[in-house]
């Protein structure tokens, strides 16, 4: 009952062009049936994410560990709430990040859980930069 060969093949890596995404904007792409949020973060959002003391986080993780160095403005996360799998809304909530309408979990501008029932941060999918304006997810 595990995924069949066609499903696995359809889950191959995809490339996403980041050039049209302006600062402060974000796009949602689908990979393996999951929504992936790609945010072009503002300076303010990056600073906010980096100034939070780790000890105050329910799932401590530095912002540096969640983005690729040299591409700090890009946050790539799987847009699936770690509580029960709803899709959080970008640019909502008290932390300049994501807000899940189902059970009220709030994530910050690094996709880390700050408030609500979700146990973990939004997952970062495997991805790398192919060029400065293009990433490959998967």
């Amino acid at each position: 009952m595990n995924p069949d060969a066609a499903t696995i093949a359809a889950g191959a890596p995809i490339e996403v062009d980041l050039a049209p995404v302006a600062e402060g904007q974000d796009i949602k792409v689908f990979w393996r049936g999951k929504p992936i949020y790609i945010s072009h973060r503002t300076k303010k959002q990056i600073d906010e994410a980096r100034s939070v003391p780790l000890s105050s986080l329910p799932d401590p993780q530095t912002d540096e560990a969640r983005v690729k160095s040299g591409h700090e403005q890009w946050l790539v996360v799987i847009g699936i709430c770690t509580h029960l799998g709803c899709i959080p809304i970008a640019h909502e909530g008290n932390y300049d990040g994501f807000f899940c309408p189902c059970h009220g979990s709030q994530y910050d501008s690094s996709g880390r859980i700050r408030q609500g029932p979700a146990p973990a941060n939004l997952a970062v999918p495997p991805y790398q930069f192919v060029s400065d304006t293009k990433i490959q997810i998967g």
């Binding site: 009952m1 595990n2 995924p3 069949d4 499903t7 889950g11 393996r32 049936g33 999951k34």
Partner: peptide, 10 residues
């Protein structure tokens, strides 16, 4: 994954 038969409900 076993319940879904894929990477998401589909």
């Amino acid at each position: 994954t076993l319940l879904w038969g894929g990477y998401a409900v589909g």
